[in-house]
Design a protein around this nucleic acid. Structure first.
Lengths: 130, 130
DNA sequence: GCTTGCGTTGGAGTCCACTCCAGGGTGCAC
DNA sequence: GTGCACCCTGGAGTGGACTCCAACGCAAGC
């Protein structure tokens, strides 16, 4: 029993699965963010497990605000294989550090928003009674 | 004793304080994200307490990924005064909800990155001993 | 009184990340 | 065999958020 027993997906199915458009998937491949995707005899793309896993990673890193060109660089390092494992680890560690900073910043903003909303509540209450 | 005893700032000083460029500050004013900033007799902008407070808010909301046009709308509501307190509160509450979602997503990504980095460490160890 | 360093404007240019064609192919359903 | 729904390509277009520029103004220092 494998985790997901679905076979390879067409581009539109893959796109829907990850929440992107088919155009964006082709675009990602074009700029080298994704390795060339396997094709049918007729030349249509088929997204299998490895492609979907790479896509998940791209979506995750994208969510952290990592620019596409940095992810393209990462993809290039993946193609280099074992010789580039250390720099890849370094890139991820860097991004992890940035992510932590960002999370702290967002936590601060959450507190800021809560204070702000509270003052609005006070104002609204004053307007009602006034 | 006030919190910050610095007088009004020139555009470049204000820009440096918030980590933006002077051009960006002018741009924000142009698109209506900031109300017209007070000027000297010679027409140069002076950023006082209220302007800097607005800027802090803008930076915070920007950090949550709120698009500028939404913040412009918020600014418009601020200009409307008390009649628009409720919708403003609603906008902030909305953004707060989105922020929470986003924070959870980032927490998940942090876990993802940690797993990924760990597998790289394992691989690196294997490469060394191999 | 002129250089230097700040500021002003309106408008054009840039970068990023898509997004949308036009023109064409493939394969299944009827 | 003809719709129809999908897919393909290269290239152009879009929207957001800046960023840069030319041409100019003002004020302080030498």
């Amino acid at each position: 029993m494998s985790t997901t027993t679905t076979g390879p997906l067409t581009i539109s199915a893959a796109a829907e699965r990850v929440g992107l458009s088919a155009d964006t998937l082709r675009y990602y491949e074009r700029i080298g963010l994704l390795d060339p995707v396997p094709r049918t005899a007729a030349g249509q793309r088929l997204y299998g497990e490895p492609e979907m896993a790479r896509l998940e990673m791209v979506m995750r890193l994208r969510g952290t605000g990592m620019p596409l060109h940095a992810m393209v660089e990462y993809t290039r390092l993946v193609r280099e294989g074992d010789t580039a494992v250390a720099p890849r680890r370094a890139m991820l560690a860097d991004q992890r550090a940035r992510l932590l900073e960002r999370m702290e910043e967002l936590a601060a903003t959450l507190r800021y928003l809560d204070r702000k909303i509270e003052t609005y509540d006070t104002r609204l209450a004053a307007l009602e009674t006034g």
